[in-house]
């Protein structure tokens, strides 16, 4: 069983939902990434999503775009990223997901990239521009090596949801809103409906986590109440990282993480 699956199982036994936190590797530098990870773990994060920057992040809003640009300018490279993952692995067993764009994997070769990532300690992948129609080689390379987490949108048809669920492992990533990452639009009824629909259709066979625009404890509470098995918070973290000095990074991140995490714990 993969680390991600184990985590969801463990959470289910405790009657908890998953807090998945996204950060951009190397933003604003490598040292800060380590501090942020420590803060996340202290705050009780369940799964960490590490962004690897791509020059053309077309599914991302301004916050993650800016973080990608800075990370690339600071010299983030694939090898350096993998050694960072190894360092993180020495500190925590928290499942690690790599989020980047298809070309980064394709360019190195899906199999080679995934093998190296797995060796470093990556447990799964999210590629927002990888559609299931184009995923054959990617899935083959990831099989038995890493979880492949695909995205579902509120406008995804029933037949596609079935196909996407079949190609996915770990969990399903339900995009909360029409838009890019980090754009705050408030909680929409269509999102709450989508959570119910996807949950009904997948019948608990695979967990469903909600992301895009999820930024406050209040958001987390509402999506969990609507039936999500997990929530993904990203841009809100990057904004906090941007305005926090290195010395306070670990404690501030821990505090924010705790405030999100407590909304995923079932209160009796």
């Amino acid at each position: 069983m993969s680390k991600i699956k184990e985590k969801f199982k463990e959470l289910q036994e405790r009657n908890e939902k998953a807090l998945i936190s996204y950060i951009m590797a190397g933003f604003p530098n490598e040292k800060s990434t380590i501090s942020v990870v420590r803060g996340l773990v202290k705050g009780g994060v369940d799964i960490i999503e590490l962004g690897f920057p791509f020059s053309d992040p077309l599914a991302d809003g301004p916050v993650i775009q800016n973080a990608s640009t800075i990370s690339l300018e600071k010299g983030t490279k694939i090898d350096k990223f993998f050694s960072l993952v190894k360092k993180i692995r020495k500190e925590t067993d928290t499942p690690l997901i790599l989020m980047t764009y298809t070309n980064i994997l394709y360019h190195k070769g899906y199999s080679k990239f995934i093998a190296e990532a797995k060796k470093a300690g990556i447990d799964g992948f999210i590629l927002p521009d990888m559609s299931i129609e184009e995923s054959e080689d990617y899935l083959k390379a990831a099989k038995n090596n890493a979880d492949t987490i695909f995205l579902i949108s509120p406008n995804t048809s029933k037949t596609r949801i079935a196909k996407i669920a079949k190609a996915s492992s770990g969990f399903l990533y339900l995009v909360a809103v029409y838009g890019t990452t980090g754009v705050k639009t408030g909680i929409k009824n269509y999102t709450l409906d989508a959570i119910k629909n996807v949950k009904n259709q997948t019948k608990g066979k695979i967990p469903v986590s909600v992301g895009f625009g999820v930024s406050t404890p209040e958001d987390v509470k509402k999506y969990i109440k609507a039936g999500a098995d997990g929530v993904i918070v990203g841009s809100a973290y990057l904004k906090l990282i941007e305005k926090t000095s290195q010395s306070k990074l670990e404690s501030k991140i821990a505090l924010f993480t705790k405030s999100l995490k407590c909304q995923t714990v079932h209160k009796k």
Binding site: L58, A59, T102, P128, D129, M130, S131, E133, E134, F150, L151, I152, S153, N155, T156, S157, R160, I164, V175, Y178
Partner: peptide, 19 residues
């Protein structure tokens, strides 16, 4: 067929754009 010219083309797009 499938939007491919040999191995080129295809549709590598965010799910929201599929419909």
């Amino acid at each position: 067929k499938n939007g491919r010219f040999g191995e080129f083309g295809g549709k590598y797009i965010p799910e929201t754009l599929v419909p």
